[in-house]
């Protein structure tokens, strides 16, 4: 095993431990951690089994294997950024919906409080049999 392979292996193991720690401390949701575990696993495999990267790069027609690695990493990061943009869009919609709901409920509460006497008498009237 070459030095760089050993280094890559150590980094990916540290990566896996760090993700595991984040999940344990509840700073990372399991659903997102799965993706990162998968990436760490891919890095580990590529580090340990050197011919794999060479095979991928020649299959893609890329002469230097490290370029194939950069290409795949870049594509992955593009995909990830897009995924996060989608998540942010959804969160934006959700937060707007909640803000509007809060505004409406706060208004209802204010009206109920200002009409406090009426509300009580209505409730009492409802309790009495007709």
């Amino acid at each position: 095993m070459s030095k760089i392979q050993l280094f890559a292996l150590l980094v990916s193991i540290a990566f896996i431990l760090a993700i595991f720690q984040l999940v344990r401390k509840k700073k990372l949701k399991e659903q997102y951690s799965l993706m990162w575990f998968l990436i760490a696993a891919v890095i580990t495999v590529l580090a340990v089994w050197e011919p794999l990267l060479g095979g991928i790069s020649s299959a893609l027609g890329i002469s230097v294997p490290s370029n194939a690695l950069f290409l795949l990493a870049l594509l992955f990061l593009f995909g990830l950024a897009l995924h996060f943009s989608m998540l942010v869009s959804r969160l934006t919609d959700q937060s707007q919906f909640l803000a509007q709901k809060l505004a409406l409920l706060e208004r209802d509460l204010r009206q109920r409080e200002s009409a406090g006497g009426d509300a009580t008498s209505t409730a009492e009237a409802d309790d009495e049999p007709a």
Partner: peptide, 10 residues
Amino acid sequence: VELLRLPFNV
């Protein structure tokens, strides 16, 4: 008047 107060700028 009626008031609907949004907790942050939307």
